[in-house]
Simulated assay, not measured.
Amino acid sequence: MKEIKNIIRQFDQTPPEEKLALATVVRVEGSSYRRMGARMLVSENGNWVGGISGGCLEGDALKRSRMAILKGKASAITYDTTIDDDHQIGVGLGCNGVIDVLFTPVDRSRADNQIELLKRITGGPRKISKLVKVTRSENSDLLGELLEFTGSESLQILKEEGVNIDELAQAVRSLDKSKNIHLSDELSLFVEVLPPAYHLILLGHQYDLYPLLRQTIELGWDITVVAPENKVSPMEGVNLMTPEVFDSIEFDDYTAVVLMSHSLHTDKENLRKLSKKKPKYIGMLGPRVRSERIWAELAEEGDAIPADLMQNIYAPVGLEIGANTPDEIALSLLAEVKGVFALKQIAHLRDKAQPIHERDEPMTFK
Rank of each mutant, 00 (worst) to 15 (best):
H348A: 11
I321W: 07
Q88M: 15
M235D: 07
D351M: 10
I157Q: 13
L319D: 08
G318M: 04
A197N: 12
H262N: 07
S152E: 01
H265N: 14
L20E: 00
I69W: 05
S275Q: 13
R110E: 14
A74Y: 10
P362V: 13
L212M: 13
K268C: 02
D267W: 04
R214N: 14
A169D: 00
P306F: 08
K352V: 04
R34C: 13
G90I: 10
Q13I: 07
L183C: 06
V101T: 10
N239R: 11
S75E: 09
E58L: 04
G37T: 14
N180P: 12
G54R: 06
A21R: 02
L212F: 03
G220R: 00
A197F: 13
I128A: 03
D247F: 11
Y254E: 09
T364C: 13
G72C: 02
F341Q: 06
V172S: 03
G162H: 13
M284N: 12
D107Y: 04
K366S: 13
E186N: 15
E145P: 02
A335P: 02
S263V: 05
V257D: 00
T82I: 11
G50Q: 00
N139S: 03
G30K: 08
G162S: 03
W221Q: 09
A353E: 15
H199S: 09
S109L: 08
E58R: 11
L331W: 01
H87P: 01
L93P: 03
I157G: 01
R359W: 14
V42H: 00
A111S: 15
V106M: 01
A76K: 01
E328V: 15
L142E: 09
I128T: 14
D267A: 06
L155H: 04
A323N: 11
Q215A: 01
M235A: 13
K2S: 07
D327V: 10
E186F: 15
H357Q: 12
P362N: 04
V28F: 04
D84P: 07
I321S: 08
G90F: 08
L62P: 08
S65R: 01
Q88D: 09
P228R: 11
G37R: 06
V193G: 00
N324E: 14
A299Q: 06
V28M: 00
W48G: 00
I294F: 09
E58D: 11
D141T: 12
P228E: 07
D351K: 06
R272L: 06
E300K: 10
L343W: 09
V225I: 10
S188I: 01
E167K: 05
V226G: 05
